[in-house]
Amino acid sequence: MRALIRILATLIGVAVAVAGVLTIIEVLWAWWRPASAPLWVPWPGWLDQASTTTWQDTGTRVTAALVALAGLVLVLLAASARRHHLALHDPAPDVTVTTSSRSLARVVGHRVRAETGVRSASVTATRGHVTVRAVPAPVDGDETLQPRLLAVVRDLVDDLPLREKPRVTVTVVSSRERREHQPEPSRSRPATPGLRPGS
């Protein structure tokens, strides 16, 4: 998002600057030689067209809606381009430590998969919430798996010096249930090792 906003800001800047230059040139040209105006931009034609279309014409309304929509998209993009780091406690004055939500998901995922009775697990982590979906080993009819995993993940998250402690949710999906309901696996991000470690 932050790379996109940089490109967008460049394009917007160039567009605004070009609009400014064209305005200056057209105004000066129309001032100097009113008879041969316009120079490049056919603004008298636009003016004629705008004096025949009214505000309630479909064309005007569609254009207005498109402009408003584009503006909304820009505002949302600008709002979403904030920093997405998870802050850790400062180990010393003048030192700020951060990590990524991906890192947190990786740590939790490795820990959960290392527990006995877990066949697979997917973890989604944000600043305020860690969600674990675990699939138990098929033979194991272990009722205590969910509370055990919850305690393990809570301990692990508490042990990390995160400034904001995320809430922890652990769901254990039984293999039978999984086969019947086919829960969507696409929404949860599997925290497999090697997921773009540098990002």
Binding site: A9, T60, L66, L74, V75, A79, R82
Partner: peptide, 22 residues
């Protein structure tokens, strides 16, 4: 972010105002 937000807000307001007038 400021540049994008300013241009976006202006476009949003102008578009909405034109819709309201229309």
């Amino acid at each position: 972010r400021t540049a994008t937000a300013v241009v976006g807000t202006l476009a949003l307001l102008a578009g909405l105002l034109a819709l309201v007038v229309g």
